[in-house]
Simulated scan of single mutants.
Amino acid sequence: MSKVRADSRAVQLAVLVPAALVALAVLVLAARWLLGVPAVEAFVDRYPGVATAPETTPVGLPAWLGWQHFLNFFFLVLIVRTGWQIRTTRRPAAYWTRDNRRFVRTRGKPTKISLDAWLHLSLDVLWLLNGLVFAVLVFATGHWVRLVPTSWDVFPNAVSVALQYLSLDWPTENGWVHYNALQLLTYFVTVFVAAPLAAVSGFRMSGAWSKRWKRASSAFPMEVARKIHFPVMIYFVLFVVVHVTLVLATGALRNLNHIYAARDDGSWVGFWIFAGSLVVVVAAWVLARPAFLQPVASLTGKVTRR
C-alpha cells in the first residue's frame, strides 16, 4: 500500500507542478496585458500601492521586532514540522505520559500522547507567549498602525500591487517607512486572523480542552477545529515561502537589515544574522528527535518507546 501511495503522489506531483507553472505563466501574461490597458494603467497611476497612513506612523523598525521575527520563524517552522508528523505518522516512535504528581491532579487516566504531539504543544505554548509579548510591544510602541489598515484605499492599492507583482514589474519597496497595501493586508491577516485561528483550533484539538465543557464542545465541534487548523497551517507555509522569496528578490541586503539588524542600509550585517538564524533553525530541526527530546520531555512526564 505504501508503495502504491508513493507512486500516486509522484504522479500527482508530476501533473501538478507543470500545471502550476503554466497557470503562473498565464497569470503573468494576463497581468502584463492588463497593465497595458489605458483604464488599468490609469487605475495604477491613481493607486500606486501605498495606502493612506496616519501622520504618527513610526518610521523604522525597532530591534525587538528583529528578535520577534526570528522567534516566530523558529517556532513556526518546528510547529509546522511536528504538526505534519502528527498528521502523517501512524506509529510514533515514542510517547509522553503526563506525570500528574508534578502538577494539579486531574480526573481520569493520565494523558498519553506521541512525543511529536508533546513537542508540538510545547512549541505552541512558547509561540503564543512570544505572540503575547509581540502584541504588548506593538501596541505600546504605536507600531500597530504599520499592521492595521486605517483607510479604505488600502483595497484598491492592494489590487494595484498584486497586478504589479504578477506582471513582474514590481513596485518600489520602502519597508523602512511603510509597507505596501498588499503587505499591510497580508500582515494584518497573518497576525490578527490566522494566528488566533491556529491557536483557538489547536486548543480545541488538544488534551487541554476539557470533556466537561459540553456546551463549548457543542458550539465548537472537533470536526470544525480540524477543518480550520490544517488550512491555516497551509496558509502559514505559503506565507513563509512567498515572504522569503520577495524579501530576497526585492533588495535582499536592505530587507534583511530591516528585519534583523534594525538599520536601513545595504550592509551585510542583517544577512549574517539571518544566516546564523538559519543555522539555529536547521540545528533544532535535526535535534527534534526522540533521542534528544526524551531528557527534556522527561521533566514533565514519562517517555516510553514504541
Rank of each mutant, 00 (worst) to 15 (best):
L278T: 05
A63G: 13
S218C: 12
V26G: 11
S167M: 03
A288F: 08
A93L: 10
V247T: 04
P18T: 05
L238W: 14
W209Y: 10
L299H: 05
N157G: 02
R226Q: 12
T56C: 11
T97N: 01
F274W: 13
H243A: 01
V224M: 13
W33M: 12
Q294M: 15
A194F: 03
A181D: 11
T82M: 04
A10Y: 10
D265T: 10
V77L: 07
V28C: 14
A30M: 15
P48Y: 06
F274M: 00
D169F: 04
A93S: 15
V145D: 03
M1N: 08
F73H: 05
T186E: 00
G83H: 01
E223H: 10
P231T: 01
A93I: 13
Q183W: 14
A181N: 00
N157W: 03
F70D: 06
S277I: 09
Y260C: 03
H69V: 01
G175W: 13
H243E: 02
F188M: 14
L78W: 02
F139Q: 05
G60V: 08
T57R: 12
D264T: 08
L76A: 15
Q183I: 07
S206E: 04
A284G: 05
P149L: 03
P295D: 06
V28P: 07
F134G: 00
R306D: 10
T106P: 00
G301S: 04
N257W: 05
G175H: 13
V244I: 15
H69S: 05
G60Q: 02
T304C: 00
L248P: 06
H229E: 00
T88Y: 12
V286Y: 15
V281P: 06
N257Q: 01
R289H: 11
T172N: 08
A288S: 09
Q68N: 15
D264Q: 09
V241F: 12
I79H: 01
G276V: 08
W152E: 05
R146T: 07
A297K: 01
A199H: 07
V191S: 01
T186F: 05
V145T: 11
L24F: 15
K3P: 11
K211G: 14
K227H: 14
R254N: 03
D7Y: 04
Y47E: 06
G202T: 00
V303C: 13
F139H: 14
P221Y: 11
A30I: 09
N180E: 10
W176T: 02
R87K: 10
R212M: 15
V224W: 10
V200N: 01
